[in-house]
Design a protein around this nucleic acid. Structure first.
Length: 864
RNA sequence: GCGGGCGUGGCGGAAUGGUAGACGCAACGGACUUAAAAUCCGUUUUUCGCAAGGAAGUGCGGGUUCGAGUCCCGCCGCCCGCACCA
């Protein structure tokens, strides 16, 4: 590299040191200044950063630096989502202790993030595996218990019978354990739950207020919460001989209007009634086993036929004493929703129809378009649903005949309520949050099990419950189970021998409140309220859309639970949310199907081939970077070769931030060339204007100034709205204009102040994206202070106003010419000018203009 | 099945209902150079034409409007989320 080139290897570490030594990005509460809290979803310390991190953290960094320059007191922290299974896997596979592995990874990744030149407040760094962090989680859990937000109940887990361990859903592959390959069983264990369903309605309605969240995410959460308005009511049950049973069958429905179309009832195989009856009924026992073995994967559900097992009992129709409905245990009824029991109305529900056809049950249409005669509609293989635009009425339904669906629902509800057999009920799909994990590398659940006192929370003065280091991974399962001393404790209440809870928290708990901890990361309480009240909510949160539901919903719940228990004073933790797209890259394959590194692909005579073996290659899709597809580009290699600024610039260029961005070698080369071009331009500008440091009265080159100030205005607006790609296009325009001005050597003396101004504004504009280069350029332009301490420039309104405008001239909507006129020229004057234009008369071809539409300063359209 | 989004040059993408293709990438031509790299200048939607100048053009078909990539209706295609939720 020659000396006239910009050398990021020298400049970048130098400025990183400068920012650190001057503590430029350490945030302090300051009530006199407006705050801005920008946060990117914190990383899992896997060991190395990937391009997704580079994109995510670059965006956040641009926002942080931009807001800072605009005068905000900016909080931009970083931490580590440090608990989780990969650390345990490393322990099992390589014998490294999870803690060692995690902290080594953190150290490596911290270095990589620092090499990106991020404007982070490292003094606030937190790691969720640090007892100084998770002790507060334990304390809050104990308070949540007291507030009735915690429940302990039996729940099903995936059990690997060979490894004797619980598996997470993602460790179950095709129904088998990922490590042992053994068929996974369902086991029931007592587990801890956070009562997120207490907030179902609140979490749903508050979505409407999150106007700065993507509509898509709000919708996904709405669907996830899954509110439905219906009825819960019960049927009287009888035996085959007609004798009444002394229990009733409770069902849930949203279509009580179709009650006269009911032809059977179905209950889940896990329904209490099915369990009890199985004891006396071998066929039912066999059926329950069959259903349990089918698994719950989407695929198996898709393929499974609707099947049932008749129980030999019957439900009496509430309004037709003569009618009795056979009751089945059925594979398509879920225990987890509603009452785990339904009535089937085959004419208007596809599943019920499939079931009815299989078992020869009646199909009675009860809703039909009102254009159809009273005879009704025919249902063959497809259940009838109201289509858009259909007006429907009830038929074959006794006292409901002729009513609309809402009227019928209302009438049925009213009658059932009067009869005392049911009530209107709102149901949610949302389930309580199971937080127990039978894992070592997580936050210990601060509870002790005592035979006499039951489950007892660990007294707060004994917190934290520290995860012991001396564990062994020799045996399968949770090492805490085999730890001799940690597990055995005395009951804090009665002091008799008791057992410590060996489950740890779901790591989603760790990430449900870290944003609040960043406000006061060293406080002796979970959050210092003064600090939290100043910084919260997060003004701009950025992360991948893969967290659209779980992490974001849990966080919304947690901030409410923390407010309820007095730790916070807010509801919504994230004011504005941005979900960025993935980084994708081309893929190559051998004929054998084996993936090949793109770096090994070469073009030989127009065909792709392997650079080393010469084997022919086919181009795969452009896909998310992944190790298995071998299309990963290592950010460290890129930063080493081009510097962080080039990588950052590339990440922000061209593609809108919410879309997937394709990593291309040529694109990075382009960014690299641009950094060099900036460096040359700024140096040339500095030389050309060396004698004109102070801006004189004669700015000269008004066009250059106009371009620069308009770009400044546009970039300010675009950065405020996260439109990085558009900002970059405007900065290119400034660079092009500056380049042209420098070329016109005839009048540099006159243009010097304008050139200097252009160079300075350009540097400040790209500074949030390429901070190191900006600092170097700023020095070249003769500044003593750093860019990070320089306020964002302000556009001169006089230069934004135009005195002349271009008006497009159309004839019948087709553009024929354009004219330059004084801004604000009147309708009449414009009309007079355009009617004389040659192009207009040619296009009119002798016809007289019927009408002339003029939009002042914009367009004239002659209708002829 | 339900819900949502998107279709613009060779590519990534710009366009408050008002000159479609800003800006970048790639390609091509030229300058500089012994040469290459780097750099600089230019061309680049398609099509007819030597040119001046036409014609067509934002997935397809209609509509609203003086004017539609943008709004409305109906198709086609691609992508994403949820899914036996009663």
């Amino acid at each position: 590299m020659s000396t006239d080139r910009y050398n990021p290897r020298d400049a970048e570490p130098r400025w990183q040191r400068y920012w650190t030594e001057n503590r430029c990005f350490e945030a302090k509460e300051d009530l006199s200044r407006p705050k801005y809290y920008v946060l990117e979803m914190f990383p899992y310390p896997s060991g190395r950063i990937h391009m997704g991190h580079v994109r995510n953290y670059t965006m956040g960094d641009v926002i942080a630096r931009f807001r800072r320059a605009c005068g905000y007191n900016v909080l931009h922290p970083m931490g580590w989502d440090a608990f989780g299974m990969p650390a345990e896997n490393a322990a099992i596979e390589r014998g490294v202790h999870p803690k060692t592995w995690t902290y080594e990874n953190i150290a490596a990744m911290r270095g990589q993030l620092q090499s990106m030149g991020l404007a982070l407040d490292w003094s606030r760094e937190i790691a969720t595996c640090d007892p100084a962090y998770y002790r507060h989680e334990q304390e809050m859990f104990i308070d949540f218990m007291a507030a009735g937000l915690v429940e302990r109940k039996v729940s099903t887990v995936n059990w690997d019978p060979v490894d004797n361990t619980v598996l997470a859903n993602e460790q179950v592959i095709d129904g088998c354990g990922w490590r042992s390959g053994a068929l996974v069983e369902k086991r029931e264990l007592a587990q801890w739950f956070l009562k997120i369903t207490n907030y179902s309605e609140e979490l749903l309605t508050a979505l409407d207020g999150l106007e700065l969240w993507p509509e898509k995410v709000r919708l996904m959460q709405r669907n996830w919460i899954g509110r439905s308005e219906g009825m819960r009511f019960s049927f009287a049950l009888e035996k085959a001989d007609g004798t009444l049973l002394d229990e009733r069958l409770m069902v849930y429905t949203t279509r009580h209007d179709t009650i006269f179309g009911a032809s059977f009832c179905a209950i889940s195989v896990d329904h209490d009634l099915a369990r009890r009856m199985a004891g006396k009924d071998p066929a039912l026992t066999a059926f329950r086993k069959e259903v349990a073995s089918l698994g719950t994967s989407e695929e198996s559900i898709e393929r499974a036929e609707k099947k049932g097992c008749a129980l030999g009992i019957f439900a009496r129709h509430p309004f037709r004493p003569d009618l009795r409905l056979p009751v089945y245990a059925a594979n398509f009824v879920l225990m987890g929703y509603g009452e785990g029991a339904i009535f089937g109305c085959p004419a208007h529900d596809q599943r019920d129809l499939d079931f009815a056809r299989r078992y020869g049950l009646p199909v009675i249409p009860v809703v039909a378009p009102n254009t159809v005669n009273a005879g009704g509609i025919k249902v063959e293989d497809e259940a009838y649903h109201e289509k858009d635009g259909d007006q429907t009425i009830l038929i074959n339904s006794d006292f409901l005949d002729g009513m609309s669906v809402p009227e019928a629902k209302d009438e049925v509800a009213r009658r059932m309520e009067t009869m005392g057999i049911g009530e209107r009920k709102i149901n949610y799909r949302l389930r309580d949050w199971g937080v127990s994990r039978q894992r070592y590398w997580g936050c210990p659940i601060p509870v002790i099990h005592c035979n006499a006192c039951g489950t007892v929370p660990v007294p707060k003065d004994q917190l934290p419950v520290i995860l012991p280091d001396d564990v062994s991974f020799d045996k399968p399962g949770n090492p805490l189970e085999h730890h001799p001393t940690w597990k055995n404790v005395n009951c804090p209440v009665c002091e008799r021998t008791a057992r410590r809870e060996t489950d740890t928290f779901d790591t989603f708990i760790d990430s449900s409140w870290y944003y609040a901890r960043f406000c006061s990361p060293k406080a002796s309480v979970p959050v210092d309220k003064l600090a939290a009240n100043y910084w919260m909510p997060v003004d701009q949160y950025i992360g991948g859309v893969e967290h659209a539901i779980l992490h974001l919903l849990y966080s919304r719940f947690f901030s409410r639970a923390m407010t309820r228990t007095g730790y916070l004073d807010l509801k919504e933790p994230f004011d504005s949310l941005f979900t960025q797209g993935m980084v994708i890259h081309e893929t190559f394959k051998l004929d054998s199907g084996e993936w090949v590194f793109p770096a090994d692909a070469v073009l030989l005579n127009g065909n792709w081939a392997h650079a080393k073996t010469g084997e022919p290659l086919t181009i795969g899709g452009v896909e998310k970077m992944s190790k298995s597809k071998r299309n990963v580009i290592d950010p460290e290699v890129i930063i080493e070769r081009y510097g962080a600024d080039t990588a950052r610039w590339f990440m922000l260029s061209d593609t809108p931030p919410e879309r997937d961005i394709e990593w291309t070698e040529s694109g990075v080369e382009g960014s690299w060339r641009f950094t060099q071009r900036i460096w040359r331009l700024v140096n040339e500008a500095a030389i050309a204007t060396a004698d004109a440091r102070s801006v004189g009265s004669d700015y000269g080159s008004i066009e250059l100034r106009r371009t620069v100030h308009r770009a400044l205005q546009a970039v300010t607006d675009d950065l405020s709205n996260l439109r990085f790609n558009r900002s970059i296009a405007r900065i290119y325009e400034v660079a092009n204009a500056l380049g042209s001005a420098l070329q016109q050597k005839a009048s540099p003396a006159l243009a010097a102040p304008a050139i200097r101004e252009a160079a300075e504004i350009m540097v400040l504009l790209f500074a949030p994206m390429m901070p190191h280069l900006a600092e170097e350029c700023w020095k070249v332009l003769g500044h003593e202070s750093a860019v990070v301490e320089t306020p964002w420039p302000k556009a001169d309104p006089a230069l934004l106003a135009e005195d002349e405008v271009t008006i497009a001239v159309q004839v019948n909507g087709k553009r024929r010419d354009e004219i330059r006129v004084a801004k604000g020229l009147s309708r009449e004057q414009i009309e007079a000018i355009v009617l004389k234009l040659d192009a207009v008369n040619r296009a009119l071809d002798g016809r007289a203009p019927k009408k002339v539409v003029v939009v002042v300063d914009r367009i004239a359209n002659i209708v002829g």
